[in-house]
């Protein structure tokens, strides 16, 4: 076991607090904070997945909310058919819904990735945004599943051993999922695959002349990232039990990006710190004023203008990447 660095300790402390505090709040009668923590944890999974392509891959995807939304609808639509078209119990089985969410998002990531990754720079930003908006309009146009108004999920996913109707167990599942997601991304990043991905971010031409098929590596990373975000979406659907196209609106994608940037790109803990800060800021500001987007927007501009390297960089006194 290698010795923990300063940032390693910070990661351990933050994750330990995140594991302990919410259940304590819940058991002492503050159920609200557990809800907040569950939402935060799920968004953090999506942010961690975005960090894989945005932070390590240098691919500025502005459409990540679409994967989250697709994952949520992969839970909602079978549950809807189970209720109104008497589909079998398999339709509300989590062991069907969760893999379905992952597959749907992965396939969407593959199909759009094939096109998106042919483009560079600002084209990539806009085209990922456009494809996400395409899914948004697609869902809006399907009246069967509520269109604009969204869809209520009547039954949460049924899983062996775990009962998602219990807020504590839902939080537990989300938390463990977040840990797994962080470890997974860390493993990917430190593997040969991850090295190629980061190399391509630094100098694409050089990686190509070294003989790597950069396009294939990026596409793979894009699909993995999309699949993880889809899984986060399945959790989010189970948490909110109400899903709507609004989940995939481009401002949701913007918020996910903000979490990654605020926390610190290309760091293990960054996306989690970003998600925590985002939820806390949103919560505090929205209790003060309904116009909370105003100070929030100003803060966003301020962060972009003045904070380099994100919170993870600020807290450990060094910008940039993990040591």
């Amino acid at each position: 076991m290698q010795k923990l660095t300063r940032r390693g300790w910070l990661t351990v402390i933050v994750m330990a607090l995140l594991a302990v505090l919410p259940p304590v709040f819940y058991l002492t009668g503050n159920a609200f904070y557990l809800d907040l923590a569950t939402r935060l944890t799920i968004l953090a999974i999506a942010a961690v997945s975005l960090n894989l392509i945005l932070g390590y891959g240098g691919l500025i995807s502005f459409g990540h909310a679409a994967f989250v939304g697709l994952g949520a609808y992969a839970v909602g639509i079978p549950a809807y058919h189970w209720l109104y078209y008497s589909w079998g119990d398999w339709a509300v089985n989590g062991l069907v819904q969760f893999p379905l969410a992952i597959i749907v998002s992965a396939v969407f990531a593959l199909l759009t990735g094939i096109v998106c990754l042919r483009t560079r720079g600002v084209y990539f930003i806009m085209i990922t945004m456009a494809f996400a908006q395409m899914v948004y309009y697609l869902i809006v146009s399907i009246e069967e599943y509520g269109g604009d108004d969204g869809l209520v999920i009547d039954t949460r996913s049924e899983l062996p051993l775990i009962n998602l109707d219990d807020p504590l167990q839902l939080f537990g599942l989300s938390y463990v999922s977040l840990l797994v997601a962080m470890l997974l991304v860390r493993m990917i990043v430190n593997s040969r695959f991850g090295m190629v991905l980061q190399g391509a971010k630094g100098n694409e031409e050089r990686m190509i002349s070294l003989g790597f098929n950069v396009y294939a590596y990026r596409l793979t990373a894009y699909v993995i990232s999309g699949a993880m975000a889809g899984y986060a979406g399945a959790l989010l659907g189970n948490f909110t039990t109400f899903i709507s196209p609004e989940m995939m609106d481009w401002s949701r994608s913007g918020e996910l990006m903000f979490m990654v940037i605020l926390g610190g790109v290309a760091t293990t803990l960054g996306p989690v710190l970003g998600a925590v800060s985002f939820i806390v800021i949103e919560e505090i500001l929205s209790t003060i004023t309904i116009y909370w987007h105003l100070p929030f927007g100003l803060m966003l501009i301020g962060v972009v203008l003045f904070v380099r390297g994100g919170l993870a960089g600020l807290l450990t006194g060094r910008g940039g990447k993990d040591d």
């Binding site: 903000f258 940037i261 501009i301």
Partner: peptide, 24 residues
């Protein structure tokens, strides 16, 4: 102030600006 930065900063900064202007 953002001209010399990369596109990611442009996107985030102007995203913040949208929130500000919409709320105004």
């Amino acid at each position: 102030p953002l001209y010399s930065r990369d596109h990611l900063d442009h996107v985030l900064g102007t995203f913040g600006l949208i929130l500000v202007l919409d709320t105004l």
